[in-house]
Design a protein around this nucleic acid. Structure first.
Length: 814
RNA sequence: GCCGGGGUGGCGGAAUAGGUAGACGCAAGGGACUUAAAAUCCCUUGGUGCUGUGCACCGUGCGGGUUCGAUUCCCGCUCCCGGCACCA
């Protein structure tokens, strides 16, 4: 008997799949389409376990859909631009392109060794000019429609990566990629107006809420951070000018005792009277010098300016305060120390008065008795005609009242900022604009696209954008007037490329436009997207936004790119994420060499449900390998049998038939809900059963062989190589991938006899075997025959009997 | 602080329109085969107790509640993980 030799058979079947082209997606196919997508990898050098998990999940789904009769698109590519390529270029004195393409070649080999069902003809790499050309084209169209703009702004800057970061890329005040401290810098930058889409990004969540993890939608909602409030005008004392504040609590306007302004507010120094100038300037300088430290104590300084509260004409002092953000609202806030904790702390520190305006029964009616701000509900007090009104109601009544005077209006504010897409790096897609002294900012002509990255560039990591030093690149002519002009030297944030790659897969070689609309209309939306949770508010928000942009530019009809999303958990080892520094990395290559790809895939799908973190265990992988060996021996030892679906008559036949159908049912249900771990468990149970069955006569043998065949089909999406090999060993000329997913026979699942629980007062006392669908009376009399039941019912009165057919009988005895 | 998700054997994890808790796997222990080892196969394995091979009690983070019956539903608490964080 031949032994299971994964190395040999895996190579063999990968070659056969490739030769037969069975995973090529074809639009002319009449079957229903299914677009299965996994987040494409960054070509860092090698595949890691996180990739294996991501792609094993995606592949199981894709292969399942093939077997279910769908026309599947399952593509792969590389998110190939980015900083590690430049860093590697500096470290190894090579070129980012060379490094990147070598990595891509190696990683393709690794992916192929894992046997994934990709349509390799659709491979894309985002650093290919034939790819980024289209991004440049769309950018120009966005520019013309006013969807992008350039402005000087204070931006997040990473000194290690020497480039700007978008808000989404700053984590805990640190760079998302390298972890160094992020500082603020003033630079001219390009922005995508994603804020114009804030409401759509929120509202359209209802289109995807059934298919996306709740958690991701909540994270995006919080990130967009919409809040309802009002702008309120405060007159500046002694001037015919106003400062506007944003507040979500207009109900507390009568409690305003001072106001605060952001130290970097552009109007601040202009307003400050001379006798306060020196001190305020000092404070502002100190603020600007300091790193932004969020745990810092609240500090401020009186500006010498008074504002007039529009609700009662009271004068309140204006403070410059370090906790006021210029970027949110208007950069000026009204302060209500009695009902806002920050204002409370500030007032305590600088000994400012507090006025109570929201009152709840039981509390003191003096703000001086408060130990912290009262932020809950209540009724208004000390608020003139609004006294006694519930504060939620008073909010908008007060705004209405002020609005009549032109002093307030209802509004919404968002935490979401426009997307800064400029990066001062070489290895990215050039932003296709030209600066002309006469014509200003001019987009490159479409026929001149792509604006190619120059190849002969020295990457040193020093002195700003490398492109700025390439004269041949920078020096150009104005697309409008033809005069000498300079090119933009910033490149796009690489998240721009990953915001539309799934469209490009629909027609990856299309050369007339970003994609062929017919193909995109056919394949989009992505039916199932699989990737890491870490992209909840970066890639996944950008991709949703960019899809809406493409829609508004007339390229597509869809509002949302990904119908369903599955976020898989991390692969951890010894309780921590695998990393070189911790020395707990398991290299997929080693696992494939030792056990084969099927074992790696099986284990990773078996060890945990997809969304949960998965603890890698060498012993566990070994166990999965043992299972495949058991499967191998089971099938090989019965290879002469001829499969046939026979009518089960004897008890043994019925039991066999029951197990076959039960397994098909369970695995089918689990595949539909992506519970691969329990699907595999069901297959294991079935193998255990089959190992101990030993078919005797011809009928049993054909049914047995039929069961083995069904098992191979349902296991194929998880362990494709071994199932194809065993399928062939059973005498088939074709391959499992050409079969149909099995249907189960509901009738075979009905047993003649069922075991039901006999409980007394809810406690299990015995289990009894009765005819299927036996009546309550029959079951009760059978249960009362049990001595174990009698023990608890004798000498007691039976008050009540609860009966669940084929499941349980409960006797209530007192 | 706010928002979201969780707490089940030694471990990874099963089972919730309320109905036999611990499927499947790992680890551990015992046995068979073998000159031996590996591989394979079989058995045991939530805890405690007892007059030990059967029976009792306890048991799904903690405390209550609803119910004939709660891992599942409700209330309160606690701990862990993730996200956001001076957002007015």
């Amino acid at each position: 008997m031949c032994r299971y030799n994964p190395a040999e058979i895996e190579e063999k079947w990968q070659k056969i799949w490739s030769e037969q082209g069975i995973f090529k997606a074809d639009e002319s196919d009449k079957r229903q389409k299914f677009y299965q997508l996994e987040m494409f990898p960054y070509p860092s050098g090698r595949i890691h376990m996180g990739h294996v998990r991501n792609y094993s999940i995606g592949d199981a789904i894709a292969r399942y859909k093939w077997l279910k009769g769908y026309n599947v698109l399952h593509p792969i590519g590389f998110d190939a631009f980015g900083m590690p390529a430049e860093n590697a270029a500096i470290a190894h004195k090579t070129h980012p392109a060379k490094w990147t393409y070598e990595n891509i070649d190696y990683m393709i080999k690794e992916l192929k060794r894992l046997g994934f069902s990709y349509d390799w003809d659709r491979l894309i790499a985002t650093c290919d000019p034939e790819y980024y050309k289209w991004e440049q084209k769309v950018f120009i169209e966005m520019f013309k429609k006013g969807m992008v703009y350039r402005k000087k702004s204070s931006v997040n800057y990473c000194n290690t990566c020497k480039t700007v970061l978008a808000n989404e890329q700053v984590e805990d005040g640190k760079c998302w990629r390298c972890g160094s401290e992020v500082v603020q810098r003033e630079l001219d930058e390009w922005f995508f107006k994603i804020t114009d889409y804030a409401d759509q990004l929120l509202d359209d969540m209802k289109l995807i809420e059934d298919g996306w993890p709740h958690k991701v939608l909540v994270q995006q909602t919080n990130w967009i951070g919409k809040s309802k409030g009002a702008f309120v005008k405060f007159k500046i004392k002694g001037r015919d000018e106003y400062l506007e504040v944003f507040t979500t609590r207009p109900d507390t306007l009568f409690g305003v005792t001072f106001a605060s302004i952001a130290p970097n507010h552009p109007k601040l120094l202009e307003l400050v009277p001379n006798n306060h100038k020196e001190k305020v300037e000092e404070f502002v300088d100190e603020y600007k010098r300091a790193e932004r430290d969020f745990s810092k104590e609240k500090e401020g300084i009186f500006t010498g300016v008074y504002l007039i509260n529009p609700v009662n004409n009271e004068e309140v002092p204006l403070f410059a305060a370090n906790f006021v953000l210029l970027e949110y609202g208007t950069g000026v806030v009204m302060a209500v120390p009695a009902h806002d904790q920050r204002d409370f702390e500030f007032a305590e520190k600088y000994n400012l008065p507090k006025q109570l305006v929201i009152y709840k029964e039981g509390m003191s009616n003096s703000a001086d008795d408060l130990e912290e701000a009262y932020t809950d509900e209540g009724v208004l007090v000390n608020s003139a005609q609004f006294d006694g009104m519930e504060n939620e109601k008073a909010k908008w009544k007060i705004v209405e009242w002020l609005q009549a005077e032109g002093m307030a209006r209802q509004t919404y504010q968002y935490k979401l900022r426009d997307w800064n897409v400029s990066r001062q790096r070489y290895w990215g897609a050039p932003i296709p604009v030209v600066y002309c002294e006469k014509c200003g900012i001019v987009p490159e002509k479409e026929e001149n696209l792509p604006v190619r990255l120059p190849e002969n560039v020295q990457i040193t990591g020093e002195g700003g954008s490398p492109l700025a030093r390439v004269e041949k690149f920078v020096e150009t002519t104005c697309p409008i007037c033809g005069a000498k002009a300079k090119r933009e030297t910033d490149t796009f944030d690489t998240f721009v490329e990953s915001s539309w790659y799934f469209f490009r897969y629909c027609s990856p070689k299309y050369s007339d436009n970003i994609f062929d609309k017919t193909s995109a209309d056919y394949w989009m939306d992505v039916d199932q997207y699989v990737g890491g949770i870490e992209h909840a508010v970066m890639h996944l928000l950008y991709a949703r936004y960019f899809t809406k942009v493409l829609r508004d530019l007339g390229y597509v009809d869809s509002d949302e790119p990904f119908k369903r999303l599955l976020t898989q958990g991390m692969v951890i080892k010894d309780g921590a994420k695998m990393s070189k520094s911790k020395g707990n990395v398991v290299d997929p290559d080693d696992i494939i060499n030792n056990y084969g790809a099927d074992t790696a895939r099986l284990f990773i799908l078996f060890a945990a449900p997809p969304e949960k973190d998965l603890e890698w265990s060498d012993e566990g992988a070994e166990g999965s390998y043992r299972f495949l060996n058991r499967l191998w021996r089971l099938v090989v030892s019965h290879k002469g049998l001829k499969a046939g679906l026979v009518q089960a008559e004897t008890d043994r036949e019925k039991e066999l038939s029951y197990m076959i159908n039960r397994t098909i049912k369970k695995v089918s249900e689990d595949f539909n809900s992506y519970h691969f771990n329990t699907a595999i468990a069901a297959c294991m149970e079935f193998v255990n059963f089959m190992q101990n069955f030993y078919p005797k006569d011809e009928k049993e043998k054909s049914l047995f062989a039929y069961g083995l065949e069904q098992l191979l089909i349902v296991l194929n999406p998880i362990a494709p190589h071994i199932t194809d090999e065993l399928w062939q060993i059973l005498g088939h000329k074709d391959i499992v991938e050409k079969q149909s997913w099995p249907e189960y026979d509901e009738k075979a699942l009905i047993k003649d006899v069922v075991t039901i629980a006999a409980t007394v007062n809810g406690k299990l006392r015995d289990t009894i075997n009765v005819k299927t669908d036996a009546s309550q009376d029959e079951v009760l009399s059978e249960a009362l025959k049990s001595s174990k039941v009698q023990k608890y019912t004798n000498s007691k009165e039976i008050k009540k009997v609860i009966f669940v057919k084929n499941k349980l009988i409960n006797i209530v005895a007192v």
